[in-house]
Simulated assay, not measured.
Amino acid sequence: MSLINTEIKPFNATAYHNGKFVPVSNETLKGKWSVFVFYPADFTFVCPTELGDLAEQYPEFQKLGVEIYSVSTDTHFAHKAWHDTSDTISKITYPMLADPTLALSRNFEVLIEEEGLALRGTFVINPEGKIKVIEVHDNGIGRDAKELLRKVQAAQYVAAHPNEVCPAKWTPGAHTLTPSLDLIGKI
Rank of each mutant, 00 (worst) to 15 (best):
residue 4 I to Q: 11
residue 5 N to K: 12
residue 8 I to G: 05
residue 12 N to I: 06
residue 12 N to F: 12
residue 17 H to M: 07
residue 19 G to E: 08
residue 23 P to W: 10
residue 26 N to L: 03
residue 28 T to N: 00
residue 28 T to Q: 02
residue 28 T to P: 00
residue 29 L to Y: 10
residue 29 L to D: 07
residue 29 L to V: 12
residue 32 K to C: 00
residue 33 W to P: 11
residue 42 D to H: 03
residue 42 D to G: 03
residue 42 D to V: 06
residue 45 F to D: 12
residue 47 C to F: 03
residue 50 E to S: 10
residue 50 E to T: 10
residue 51 L to W: 10
residue 52 G to T: 15
residue 55 A to F: 06
residue 56 E to W: 05
residue 58 Y to F: 15
residue 60 E to K: 06
residue 61 F to E: 01
residue 62 Q to N: 11
residue 63 K to N: 03
residue 66 V to I: 15
residue 69 Y to K: 02
residue 72 S to Y: 02
residue 73 T to R: 01
residue 73 T to S: 13
residue 74 D to F: 14
residue 75 T to R: 06
residue 78 A to W: 12
residue 79 H to W: 13
residue 83 H to P: 02
residue 84 D to T: 09
residue 85 T to A: 14
residue 87 D to K: 08
residue 92 I to C: 07
residue 94 Y to M: 07
residue 94 Y to K: 06
residue 103 A to F: 08
residue 105 S to Q: 03
residue 107 N to L: 02
residue 109 E to D: 06
residue 114 E to W: 04
residue 115 E to F: 09
residue 121 G to Y: 14
residue 121 G to D: 14
residue 122 T to V: 13
residue 122 T to W: 01
residue 125 I to E: 03
residue 130 K to R: 10
residue 130 K to N: 08
residue 133 V to D: 02
residue 134 I to C: 07
residue 135 E to V: 11
residue 137 H to L: 12
residue 137 H to C: 09
residue 140 G to H: 02
residue 140 G to K: 04
residue 142 G to I: 14
residue 147 E to Y: 09
residue 147 E to D: 14
residue 148 L to V: 11
residue 151 K to W: 12
residue 153 Q to V: 14
residue 154 A to K: 15
residue 154 A to T: 13
residue 157 Y to Q: 13
residue 161 H to Y: 12
residue 162 P to H: 14
residue 162 P to F: 15
residue 163 N to A: 10
residue 164 E to W: 13
residue 167 P to S: 05
residue 167 P to C: 05
residue 167 P to L: 04
residue 167 P to E: 02
residue 170 W to V: 12
residue 171 T to F: 07
residue 173 G to Q: 13
residue 174 A to I: 05
residue 175 H to G: 11
residue 185 G to E: 13
